[in-house]
């Protein structure tokens, strides 16, 4: 019956993320507003926004409408698939089924959706956003991959359940794990596409880039996926780097996990509210520096540090 529970677990995880993601977005907006001396929208505004967009007419536009539709569905699908491999207070439902590489690929596929969206729209600004997304992806994704692999090296296994849960700190002093913690924290804003790394969308420069041709339900899917991405990445970050206390009995451990995710979201909000956007070349240089540190950490990890 283990497959049955796995399916139930997947559905629970997916439902939980889909339901909670707009709430986190609402908190994010509210806190941002407070920082900016504004009142801010109601906490539930993101739900209203999504419902409104979902109820709108589905307009076909751009160069290749089918690719556009596919990109929107795929971005949501990718997030929902990733959800099954990430522990959300419990062990991941499919944690034993896939290895770390599956997760890396899945999250990279999320970036590819943006590329496809940009190509499908075919307007100048969406193509610009696409090229920026590509530049970011090339430098950003390896960071995340290295973090997983450091965990894998320590755990001596690529199995996901072994990699997650604090494996990165194991080794003689856990130096490589701490280095990766710093690197991942410093690039977390980019993983969840927030200021100062919202470069591919940059409203004041290229008018939302790849998303400029989107509207109605397709836009809702993209936005929802983006909100969910914040939750998934935050959960993943917690599972990888902040595992302490997850062994507590049921309600405590679960609550603690989500508290940690919430704190992370608040941090993201504060960073986003207090920084100006990077230019794409500056961002690439920044991530280049991070990558050097990450590779150094990986070398340390292979020597057991």
């Amino acid at each position: 019956m283990s497959w049955f529970w796995a399916i139930i677990g997947c559905i629970c995880n997916a439902a939980l993320v889909l339901v909670l993601a707009p709430l986190f977005e609402g908190i994010l907006r509210k806190v941002t507003a407070r920082v900016q001396s504004r009142k801010g929208p109601p906490l539930l505004q993101p739900y209203y926004d999504l419902f409104k967009l979902l109820g709108k007419e589905d307009i076909e536009s751009g160069e290749a409408p089918w690719a556009q539709r596919f990109a929107a569905w795929l971005s949501m699908g990718v997030v929902l698939a990733a959800v099954c491999f990430v522990p959300m207070g419990f062990n991941a439902p499919l944690g034993g089924a896939g290895d770390a590489l599956v997760l890396i690929y899945l999250l990279m596929l999320g970036g590819l959706c943006t590329l496809m969206a940009g190509l499908a729209a075919g307007s100048t600004y969406s193509l610009l956003g696409m090229s920026r997304e590509m530049m970011l992806m090339i430098t950003l994704e390896p960071l995340f991959a290295v973090a997983m692999i450091v965990g894998a090296v320590h755990a001596n296994s690529l199995r996901l359940d072994a990699v997650l849960g604090g494996a990165v700190y194991e080794g003689r002093f856990g130096v490589s794990g701490l280095l990766m913690l710093v690197v991942s924290a410093a690039s977390f804003q980019a993983l969840v596409q927030r200021v100062p790394f919202d470069i591919p969308e940059a409203e004041t420069e290229i008018m939302e880039g790849p998303l400029s041709e989107y509207s109605g339900p397709k836009l809702a899917l993209f936005k929802w996926a983006r909100m969910a991405k914040l939750v998934v990445y935050a959960a993943l970050f917690v599972a990888l780097f902040v595992p302490w206390g997850s062994g507590l009995p049921f309600p405590l451990g679960w609550v603690l996990f989500w508290c940690k995710v919430l704190v992370l979201v608040l941090l993201v909000t504060l960073v986003a509210a207090t920084h100006a956007r990077y230019r794409v070349d500056q961002a690439v240089r920044y991530f280049g520096g991070m990558l050097v540190i990450a590779v150094f950490a990986l070398i340390l990890a292979t020597y057991g540090y």
Partner: peptide, 16 residues
């Protein structure tokens, strides 16, 4: 100017 470079907090404060 702050808004253009994506720094909306200072944009809001300046307006306040």
């Amino acid at each position: 100017a702050c808004h253009i470079v994506g720094f909306d907090t200072l944009f809001m404060q300046a307006f306040r």
